[in-house]
């Protein structure tokens, strides 16, 4: 296989220094909904200006460039080990070029590895697909919003949440209330229903890769997504918790089979800086495209 390290560096650069078109568009729309001269309007103005500036100067949108999470789909026979090497090297190079802040800290010694590689760092998941192409999705998941992410075990009597979709709605709204502005609202909510504690959070994070306009194939879940979005915005927390019309920019729900004894709901809270980017390597033509 060809060495794709530089392509991965470019993928990281794109993710760290620019927002996806739909995210930026939704920030602009949210801005126009706020009252003139309000704190919320001013916060959106600052965010939008910051994004424009970062793109122009090719510097990180936010100083916290997050955990890089790579979701990689490969055809039969492509080496995961080689690709892992390219990705890790790319993380180190991207750190050197200041697209990424050194973010990988040893929990025992407190020492920062300095190059965004470490034990199980970055996160890489592989899947096998049908096409003769390597497809990569990258999410840069910030720490502030990671801290306000939450997992609930249903039933939850305090919130009156049973093991059904209304129960899910209740705990998700509670998580938005608990987060207030601390996860750099307005956020995008990746929600997973079912699974075990570990798989549930992974699934929740994967939901964050869906475009904002992506409609859930399951009609019941599509309705739930719309309803939670509407009600979360009624909480009035607003950007940074300044109060305002927009508290969440998107809600995406996925499901997994669960154990009879367990009913988990995980909410991966992603800040306004929902930095995701894609790359496709066509193995027949060697062409690499980004989105």
């Amino acid at each position: 296989m060809k060495d794709y390290t530089q392509n991965f560096v470019e993928l990281i650069r794109r993710a760290a220094t620019d927002l996806p078109v739909d995210m930026e568009g939704s920030l602009r729309k949210a801005r126009d909904k706020e009252e003139e001269g309000s704190a919320a309007e001013s916060a959106f103005d600052t965010l939008i200006k910051n994004v424009e500036m970062a793109r122009e100067k090719s510097t990180p949108i936010c100083q916290d460039t997050g955990t890089p999470i790579f979701e990689v789909t490969i055809p039969v026979g492509v080496s995961m080990r080689e690709l892992t090497d390219y990705i890790r090297q790319a993380c180190a190079i991207a750190t050197e070029r200041a697209y990424l802040r050194p973010n990988a800290v040893d929990p025992l010694t407190g020492k920062n590895s300095g190059d965004n590689t470490g034990e199980d760092y970055p996160t890489i998941h592989f899947y096998e697909g049908d096409d003769e192409a390597i497809k990569v999705e990258l999410l840069l998941k910030g720490g502030g919003c990671e801290n306000v992410s939450a997992q609930y075990k249903l039933p939850d009597s305090k919130l009156g949440a049973g093991r059904d979709l209304d129960g899910v709605r209740r705990v998700v709204l509670d998580s938005v209330y608990q987060a207030q502005g601390k996860g750099c609202a307005p956020g995008v909510l990746g929600v997973a229903i079912g699974g075990d504690r570990g798989s549930s959070y992974v699934k929740a994070k994967q939901q964050l890769l869906r475009p904002l306009a992506d409609k859930n194939e399951n009609a019941e879940l599509a309705e739930l997504e719309d309803r939670i979005m509407d009600e979360a915005n009624q909480l009035g927390i607003g950007p940074m918790g300044f109060g305002g019309e927009t508290t969440v920019l998107g809600v995406k729900v996925g499901t997994q089979h669960r154990l009879p004894a367990c009913y988990f709901v995980s909410i991966a809270y992603m800040c306004w800086a929902n930095r995701r980017a894609q790359m496709e390597i066509n193995l027949n033509t060697q062409e690499v495209s980004y989105a």
Binding site: T46, M53, I61, W272
Partner: peptide, 12 residues
């Protein structure tokens, strides 16, 4: 309150 995440703009 500074705007969280607006690092480039603030540095500017």
């Amino acid at each position: 309150h500074a705007v969280g995440g607006a690092a480039t703009l603030i540095a500017q």
